[in-house]
């Protein structure tokens, strides 16, 4: 019987070595595999390359991993002003940034997962992000050639998972998680609930289990339970 479940996050990240490349799903706090990232901090691997939309916010999850000095390179589209740990280290020249437009980042990950050697996109043509890139005019428009991005490890966050690795997301958790699931050698999913095989209706399996190697059930990271300090809408 296939059983991809592991008992805790520490066990799930135990095989990660120094110098690994790791993709992190999530956009904002939604779909962020924060418990796996915290376990990686404790695990201690260093000189990591992180592929993520942002560069970590504040002092938890990726922000804390960067603050620990364990990340040497970030491939991201938007290191936000709130990425304070990243900004400090970047300005001191201690961390490398490969800045990629968000749609190009997504498609480079998709290309890796789909077995493609790259693609042409109009995004970035004629801008400073085109520097050093091959370009080609197709039907009168300039496109840039972009290469796939693979990763040694992928961390995902889903709502439900089963022992087969099937995953279901809720709300806006899907974001980068579904595409990143296809692009890593070892794919580890943090879920809030493990359900029996067949427990997720087939039409609602967002990430099919063949992409996933390990599933760990863990309570939501406390920072992902926080409400705004004041009210919602005015």
């Amino acid at each position: 019987m296939i059983d991809k479940t592991v008992s805790d996050c520490r066990q799930a990240v135990a095989m990660i070595t120094d110098g690994s490349s790791i993709m992190l799903g999530g956009f904002g706090n939604a779909g962020m595999p924060a418990q796996l990232i915290e376990a990686l901090r404790e695990h201690g691997a260093r000189n990591l390359t992180i592929i993520s939309n942002g560069a970590g916010t504040g002092d938890y999850a990726l922000g804390a991993l960067v603050g620990d000095g364990k990340v040497s390179k970030v491939v991201a589209s938007f290191p936000a002003p709130s990425a304070t740990q990243f900004r400090e280290r970047y300005l001191r020249g201690e961390i490398e940034l490969e800045l990629v437009p968000q749609g190009t980042l997504v498609e480079r990950i998709r290309a890796a997962g789909a077995g493609l050697g790259g693609f042409y996109t109009p995004t970035g043509a004629g801008t400073e992000l085109a520097a050093g890139k091959e370009s080609r005019v197709i039907n009168g428009r300039e496109y840039l050639f972009e290469l796939p991005i693979h990763a040694d490890f992928v961390f995902l966050k889903a709502y439900q998972g089963d022992r087969l690795g099937n995953l279901m997301y809720r709300g806006t958790m899907r974001n980068f998680n579904m595409v990143m699931a296809t692009a890593g050698k070892t794919v580890i999913a943090e879920v809030e609930q493990i359900v029996p095989a067949g427990g997720i209706p087939p039409e609602q399996v967002h990430t099919p289990g063949l992409f996933v190697d390990r599933v760990v059930q863990v309570a939501r990271h406390p920072r992902l339970l926080e409400l705004p300090k004041e009210g919602g809408a005015a």
């Binding site: 589209s77 938007f78 940034l97 437009p101 995004t123 992000l129």
Partner: peptide, 12 residues
């Protein structure tokens, strides 16, 4: 510290 997000994709 540059950040581009989805601006270029929307624009093209």
């Amino acid at each position: 510290v540059p950040g581009v997000g989805g601006a270029m994709d929307l624009a093209v």
